[in-house]
């Protein structure tokens, strides 16, 4: 199993350990292994619809972000360029109503990104999230797969303890071993 696969497995394991009642995702090649692992877990549990696609990121914030009002907790898996779509929902709903939410997002604005256009939004995402007060933790090639897993898990706990959305930005670029992108 490659390091990239180990990271994806760790992220999925963390979401499972957090007992996320629902996981909404906006598709991406990079996060697909995380989604596939979560769906694999669901099939092993007898087939639930815990994991489902959502058409846009702000819609995911509305659906998954509402779960704490029912006593549950959820996670969104997406790409970081989607924060451009989701910013009003994250701020005026999740932040303003103090609703915990875990968002794990692969990055498209850093090393290894081939698409010159997408840097224009993704490169500014960390500053964007900081400007609106959304706690953000970052993972990249320097973190071990175990660290990826534990960081995502603790970020989910952090969201619950602080009653707000928390983001983990995941840069999957592997340096000399790289080569995959969405």
């Amino acid at each position: 199993m490659s390091v990239t696969e180990d990271r994806a497995r760790g992220v999925a394991e963390a979401i499972d350990r957090l007992e996320c009642g629902r996981v909404g995702y906006v598709p991406s090649n990079t996060v697909a292994p995380i989604i596939l692992r979560l769906e694999e877990t669901d099939r092993a549990r007898g087939g639930t619809r815990r994991v489902f696609p959502v058409s846009r990121e702000e819609e995911a914030v509305g659906i998954i972000g509402a779960l704490p009002l029912t006593g549950a907790f959820g996670a969104i898996v997406m790409q970081d360029n989607g924060f451009g779509n989701a910013l009003t929902a994250l701020t005026t709903f999740s932040l303003a109503y103090h609703l915990p939410l875990l968002v794990v997002a692969n990055t498209r604005g850093g090393l290894g990104e081939y698409n010159s256009m997408i840097h224009a939004v993704s490169g500014g995402v960390p500053d964007l999230l900081a400007a609106v007060g959304i706690p953000t933790f970052r993972l990249d090639r320097r973190n071990s797969p175990d660290d990826w897993r534990e960081t995502v898990y603790e970020a989910g706990r952090h969201a619950r303890m602080t009653f707000r959305p928390v983001v983990v930005l995941m840069e999957f670029w592997d340096g000399v071993a790289g080569g995959r992108r969405a």
Binding site: G65, A66, L67, A72, T92
Partner: peptide, 21 residues
């Protein structure tokens, strides 16, 4: 539950609540 802003999000929030209950 009054959504004081969150333009366009009401039906999505309602869908989340409906899943949650």
């Amino acid at each position: 539950l009054y959504l004081l802003d969150s333009m366009g999000l009401t039906s999505s929030v309602g869908t989340g609540l409906a899943l949650g209950v």
